[in-house]
Amino acid sequence: MIKDMKILSALFALPLFCLMAWAVYLTYNRDTGIDVRVAVQGYDPRDLFSGRYIQYTIDWDKTPCEQFADGVCPQDEFCAEARWGRQCRFYIPEEYASTLDNLFMLRNQNDLSFEVIYSYKPKKKPIAKRLLINGLDWREYLALHPADEK
């Protein structure tokens, strides 16, 4: 068995270094990618707001593809393949989950548009950065429309 404390310590610290490297890699990708704005729609048939994250899928019909290279939307690079199509997540604080859920469900009646800003680099996994409601960050929107927060 391993008796050398240095080897043992290195072995125990290895998972921590792997996680740190992963976090650094994701931070680098997020900060060096270009911002793209995509329209989102409900992910059927499951609930949109499961606990503290929003589940959605990207509405490519409403997303301008000019923001990508060659004007082509790289649909396969966004989100993860799930049972009923590609599914994405945006994490939100628990206390706002039901508010955002209601706003999202009634978006057509209230004429609201939901979009997500991604940090995008070709051939890399895009990272969701911000959720927009009518072009405003969702926090700003809720601050400007306190009645919607009920």
């Binding site: 996680l19 992963w22 976090a23 994701l26 997020r30 503290r52 994250y53 989100c79 993860a80 799930a82 599914q87 994405c88 997540r89 945006f90 994490y91 990272i127 969701a128 950065k129």
Partner: peptide, 11 residues
């Protein structure tokens, strides 16, 4: 935590 911070969508 990393998944939450970077909005990762892995299952």
């Amino acid at each position: 935590l990393i998944g939450q911070m970077f909005n990762l969508d892995g299952g």
